[in-house]
């Protein structure tokens, strides 16, 4: 129990001091996971909307695949991305393995299905009459898409939170494709693993607390935005 208090104390001390190593690790975590979520939104929201509205044979299969993808184990994603990015692998020429870009790629693969799956659910729970009404009023496809997104913004913000939560806390994929290299690809989760492996439990707890704080701040901001739009 002492160890936990010591860790929490140290976390605040590290934040107050502005420890440059911890700051760099925290910033990299935010960059990698933030970029991954942004990219996932651009992929997942259009795809999810399409799957929610389209009627084509095999649609149920596609939706099932997306829903399965929501639970992709990060280590499996990490393994596949590593194999693809290996020097002698199919994408080896890009020299991306053990770089932040590789970590973003892996996290997009983890977050995109989450965003897509929750988008499907969000769009489908809208009243189907709404779509008919919009079309009757002469909305173009793009306008229809935009207005439906607008209507579903509350659950869509939840999709962003779920996607972000999925990748910021993930350790398996970033460890494999990033390599946990000091000053280059070390993020909060991999640093926590390393510190606890080295027996620095207080520091490991401190990093964990910082991760939780970061997650809280981001989710608080998203929730604030979400609740601004709450029907009164």
């Amino acid at each position: 129990m002492d160890l936990i208090w010591e860790g929490i104390r140290q976390a605040f001390w590290l934040i107050l001091q502005g420890d440059s190593e911890v700051l760099r690790i925290t910033l990299l975590s935010l960059q990698v996971s933030g970029s991954a979520v942004l990219i996932s939104l651009f992929l997942g929201i259009p795809l999810g909307t399409y799957l929610a509205l389209a009627r084509f044979p095999g649609r149920n299969l596609a939706v099932s695949l997306v829903n399965t993808g929501m639970g992709l184990p990060p280590v499996v994603v990490g393994l596949f991305v590593t194999l693809l990015l290996w020097r002698n692998g199919p994408l080896g020429i890009l020299d991306l393995l053990f770089t932040p870009i590789a970590m973003i790629i892996a996290q997009v693969i983890i977050a995109a299905p989450i965003v897509t799956g929750l988008t499907i659910a969000a769009i489908q729970q809208l009243n189907p009459q709404l779509r008919l009404q919009l079309l009757a009023l002469g909305a173009s496809r793009l306008q229809l898409f935009w207005l439906l997104i607008r209507e579903a913004r509350l659950p869509l913000l939840a999709a962003i939170m779920a996607g972000f939560g999925g990748v910021i806390s993930e350790v398996g994929a970033v460890m494999m494709v990033g390599g946990n290299i000091k000053g280059q690809t070390r993020v909060l989760t991999t640093a926590t693993v390393l510190e606890s492996r080295m027996g620095h439990f207080d520091l490991a707890i401190a990093l964990g607390v910082i991760l939780l704080l970061l997650s809280f701040v981001v989710n608080w901001a998203l929730t604030w935005i979400q609740q601004q739009g709450r029907p009164r």
Partner: peptide
């Protein structure tokens, strides 16, 4: 047509102002 459509539909859930606030926030 776009603003017309938006105005027609927006009140179904909330006021236009709070809706805009959400988007400004995003």
């Amino acid at each position: 047509i776009f603003p017309v459509v938006a105005r027609e539909l927006a009140p179904c859930e909330m006021s236009q102002a709070s809706c805009n606030a959400t988007f400004k926030g995003i």
